[in-house]
Computed example of a mutant assay.
Amino acid sequence: MPSFRTRSATWRRTAAALLAAAAVAGAAACAPSPGPTTAPSSAADSVQLLGRLTVATAGSMRGYSRSRFPHWRETGENCDVRDTVLKRDGRDVRLRGCNVVGGRWVSVYDDRTLSDPSQVDIDHVVPLANAWRSGAADWDDQRRGEFANDLTRPQLIAVSATSNRAKGDQDPSQWKPPNRDYWCTYAEHWIAVKHHWRLSVTSAEKATLTDMLETCSWAKRP
C-alpha cells in the first residue's frame, strides 16, 4: 500500500493538474451561475471550482454592518429563515405555532448534540463580514439579503452557539471546525458558496482549502 507521503504527493499532483485545467477554461468558466447550484459532488469538483475563484487581498471593512445583510427573512406566518433551518437540520423537532421550541441537533463543527434551540446558532458558512471583504461590499442590500438568507447553497447550517461564536468572521486559514472529520465537507461547502456568489479568496485561504480537501476520501484513495 502506498505510504501517506506517496498518496499526499499523488493528490497534490492531481490537484495541480485540475487547477491548471480550470485556469485554461478562461473567463467563460468563470461566468456567474445561471441558477441555483448545489454543493460539489466530490473533492475533484471542489478543486476545479476552487481554481476558478479570484485570489485577492481581503478588502476593507469600511461601511460594514450586519444590517447591510437583511436577515432573517419571513418564510410564512410567524416563520423566518432561522426557523426553517432549525426544522431542516433537527430531529424530533417540536413547534409552538411556527416557532421551534425543542428537538435535537448534532453540531457538525464540534460533534455536540444539543436539545435546547437557544444553544443552537444558524451559521453562515461564509460569514457576512468575510463576504463583505471578498466582494459583497459592492453589492446592493437586496443582493446581500439574498446571500444572507440563501437556503439553496450550503450556506446556512445549525451548529452550536459556542462553535459559531468561536468562528466569528474568520476564513478557513484562521479557523477550522474542531471536528476534523468535517473538514472535507466544510471546505467543499465554503468553495461552493464562494463560487456561486463570485466572492474572492485570499492566497492563505486558498492554500488552506486545498489542504482541507486532502482529507476527503476521494483524495485518500491509493
Rank of each mutant, 00 (worst) to 15 (best):
V85D: 07
H124R: 10
H124N: 08
S107H: 03
N78D: 12
W139D: 01
V120Q: 11
T75S: 06
R82M: 08
D92A: 15
W132S: 02
R91T: 01
N78K: 07
R96T: 08
D89P: 05
H124W: 03
R94A: 14
A129V: 05
C79V: 01
N99E: 10
G102Y: 14
S107W: 12
G90I: 06
I122P: 08
D138E: 15
T75Q: 09
L95T: 02
V85N: 08
R112E: 14
T113E: 11
D123N: 09
V126D: 04
T75C: 07
E74W: 14
W132Y: 08
R133F: 11
L86N: 01
V106S: 14
T113N: 12
I122A: 04
S134A: 13
L86S: 03
A136T: 04
D116C: 10
L114M: 14
V93Q: 13
D83Q: 07
V108P: 08
D121E: 12
D89T: 00
R82W: 09
D123G: 10
D121G: 09
T84M: 07
V85Q: 05
V81R: 08
I122C: 03
G135V: 09
R94Q: 15
D110G: 02
Y109T: 07
V108I: 05
D111F: 15
E74P: 10
S134G: 13
A137M: 02
D89F: 09
R96P: 09
D141R: 12
Y109P: 00
L128M: 12
A136P: 02
S118P: 06
S134F: 08
G102K: 10
T84I: 09
K87A: 11
D83R: 11
N99L: 11
V106L: 14
R112G: 11
D110S: 12
P127N: 10
S118C: 06
W105S: 00
D83E: 10
C79D: 13
A136S: 04
A136G: 03
V126W: 04
D123T: 02
L86V: 06
H124V: 06
D80V: 00
T113R: 09
D123F: 11
V106T: 11
T113D: 03
K87D: 11
V125T: 11
L95P: 01
V101W: 05
P127V: 03
D116R: 13
R94D: 13
C98M: 06
A137F: 00
A136E: 00
C79T: 15
D140W: 02
Q119P: 10
V108K: 14
W105I: 00
R143K: 12
W105M: 00
T84Y: 04
G97R: 02
A131L: 04
S118I: 03
D111N: 11
D110V: 12
S118L: 13
W139L: 02
C98I: 06
D141H: 13
C79R: 09
R91C: 12
N99A: 12
P127L: 13
D138H: 13
T84S: 15
E74N: 15
G97P: 06
N130E: 07
P127A: 15
V81E: 08
D140R: 05
N78V: 01
T113P: 05
V81S: 08
T113I: 11
S115Y: 15
